[in-house]
Structures are given as structure tokens and as C-alpha cells.
Amino acid sequence: MKFLKSVPIIFLLFLISCSTQVSDSVSETIYTEVEGINFDEKDKIDTSLEDKVFFDFDKSTLNNDTKKILSQYVSESKKANIIRLEGHCDERGTREYNLALGEKRAIEVKNYLIIQGVSSSKIKIISYGEEKPISFGSTESDWKQNRRVEITLF
């Protein structure tokens, strides 16, 4: 019985220990600020389009499949307030170089959309390099999924 009584306390302390951890960390993932603009993930526009485009290793060039996907975004992009482009890389190679490469990938997508008539001021880019993989393994099929630009409309 004594033990049962202490259960809520344990639970409470567990929460405290968790919340200390949260207060140590500064940002939650709900809001992300890019170039000074806050995005509310709840305001995402669901386009039902493919939200990722993929790249070859150490390359930022767009292939024809990618261009086909991006061209479907043009009309949606013109209606949206913000187009967020997140560049990513696979784990191979060096982290800081990959940060730059992820940015080059996002820029290539941005330039394509601009040529198609999307206003450049609406497009916000960010690179996470190899820091945020979606597939955690070390095979070509994992790497393929991680070399990407994620497109989100708000």
C-alpha cells in the first residue's frame, strides 16, 4: 500500500525530470523559424503531391522526374503564402560540406520554381545537411531516401 501511494509521486517526479530536459532545450519542433519567419506546422497546406524530391550522391542537379514533380507544385505554390524547401544529404562525406550541399539542393529547387513564375520572396530555404535522415541504415536504399529536398507549403 505504501508503495502504491508513492506511484503518483514517482510519476510526478518523472514528469519533472522530463520537463527539466525540455526546458534545457530551447526550441520545440512545432514552430520553426526560417529567415525570421515563424511557421505553424498546423497551417501546412495538404497538396496531396509528392513532398520530396531526390538527388544523386554529391549532386544538386534536378533530373527530369524531379522537374515533373516540381512542375505540379507551380500552381499550388502561387496560391500559398510560404514555400519551405528543406535540403538534406545522406551520411556519406563530411557534415559541414553536406550542410552546404543540402543548401545547394534547396537552391536548385527554388531556382526551378522561380523560373516557373513562383515569387522568390515566398520561398524559404533551409539545409539540415546529413543531420536529419529519414532512413537510418547505411545501404544505398537508405542513402537514396535521405538525399532529398522536402517541400512544404503554408
Binding site: 532545450s25 530551447v26 526550441s27 519542433t29 523559424e33 557534415r95 550542410l99 539540415y128 543531420e131
Partner: peptide
Amino acid sequence: NSPLMSPDWSPDGNKLAYVSFEKG
């Protein structure tokens, strides 16, 4: 909750420079 990268020590060992994505 966002990536941290590239720690580098000051030559006196009292400071650390690094990259954080906490602001997006």
C-alpha cells in the same frame, strides 16, 4: 530538439563554439 554541430574549443579551453539549429 534541433541539430547541434561542429564544436570547436577556444585556445584557452574556456569556451566552445558550435552550430545550433534551435531557431530553425
